[in-house]
């Protein structure tokens, strides 16, 4: 881990990760979107197969802030009543953290997502790696970390079900 990160920034980054996981595990899409920078942010969810082969197509391809907000609408307005509900539990382990200048850090973390279908058992949805560009915003004692970019690269060559929520 890079020595240039301060304890305060590290804590802010931990808080961001926690907020992200808590939002998804509660199914709170608005809270999920609020972990991204308000002005300019990107979220991608892509298979490791596509990623390794340099194939750009993703499962979710939100390359601007508007698309992130539209994904919230997909889940909360468009798809309501059609899909079989499921809950998730996300677990992450930080793998690397490097300063990228301008109060930004590049991080990688391993993730595991457990899923519990309503009326069903708990199973692994997939595992994977988050590749993040995180920015510390604000100054003095008041600052927070936000995602400029989160790229969730999932391990499963074949997903075990259709997907409603971001990874």
């Amino acid at each position: 881990m890079s020595q240039t990160i301060t304890a305060a920034h590290s804590a802010a980054i931990d808080a961001l990760h926690t907020a992200y996981l808590a939002a998804l595990d509660k199914g709170d899409m608005a809270a999920w979107a609020s972990t991204f920078a308000a002005d300019n942010a990107r979220y991608f969810c892509i298979s490791a197969e596509n990623d390794h082969r340099g194939l750009p197509l993703a499962l979710m391809y939100d390359d601007c802030r508007g698309r992130i907000d539209d994904r919230v609408s997909f889940v909360t307005k468009v798809w309501v009543g059609t899909y079989e509900p499921y809950r998730t539990r996300h677990f992450i382990q930080r793998l690397s953290c490097e300063a990228a200048g301008n109060n930004q850090y590049r991080l990688t973390s391993g993730f595991t997502i457990m899923m519990s279908a309503e009326g069903g058992t708990t199973a692994v949805l997939t595992s994977g790696e988050y590749r993040d560009l995180i920015e510390i915003q604000g100054d003095g004692d008041k600052f927070r970390a936000v995602f400029r970019e989160r790229r969730a690269v999932y391990d499963a060559d074949v997903l075990p079900r259709y997907i409603v929520f971001p990874f």
């Binding site: 750009p56 939100d62 798809w79 899909y83 079989e84 997903l159 259709y162 409603v164």
Partner: peptide, 24 residues
Amino acid sequence: IRQGSNLLGPCGMISMEDAAIFQR
């Protein structure tokens, strides 16, 4: 790339609902 990723397929704005129907 943007349209393919986000509209069709097992998480697409349109086709996620189809996928739900296959299973239901």
